[in-house]
């Protein structure tokens, strides 16, 4: 029974990971691709780790550490990527730029964002 539940968790995690890969192909510009690659892989990795924890209950501590590491590192690294991309003026898909106003303000205030 626990094997079945664990496998279901791992499978749903892999669905999320697949959607991340699909998003990389389907999204129109660099920023939305970064976003799919971050959110979906965070969820996918979490679900896979939960599934593994159900398979091997004695690994729970290490798996929790891995989930914690993913939760910290994944958003921060994609934030850094997107931020530097935005600063270098990477082209965006057409649509409103929510950061445009903040940018002009921060340029006036001496480049602190």
């Amino acid at each position: 029974m626990s094997e079945l539940i664990g496998s279901l968790f791992i499978f749903s995690g892999s669905v999320f990971l697949f959607s991340a890969g699909l998003g990389l192909l389907r999204m129109p510009d660099a920023f939305t691709r970064i976003q799919t690659g971050t959110k979906a892989t965070t969820m996918g990795a979490t679900l896979v780790m939960i599934g593994l924890a159900i398979y091997h209950p004695d690994w729970i501590f290490k798996l929790l550490l891995i989930i914690y590491f993913v939760y910290v590192s994944n958003p921060i690294s994609s934030h850094a990527l997107a931020r530097s991309g935005h600063r270098l003026g990477t082209p965006m898909a057409p649509g409103p730029d929510a950061l445009a106003e903040i940018d002009t303000r921060s340029d006036a205030a001496g480049d602190k964002l």
Binding site: F69, V72, S73, I76, H79, A80, R83, R87, D111, K112, L113
Partner: peptide, 18 residues
Amino acid sequence: RSDPGEIVHSGKQVMFPM
């Protein structure tokens, strides 16, 4: 080189010891 921002800085403080 420019300042990498507050988020990266705080993240470093969590992750560097780890």
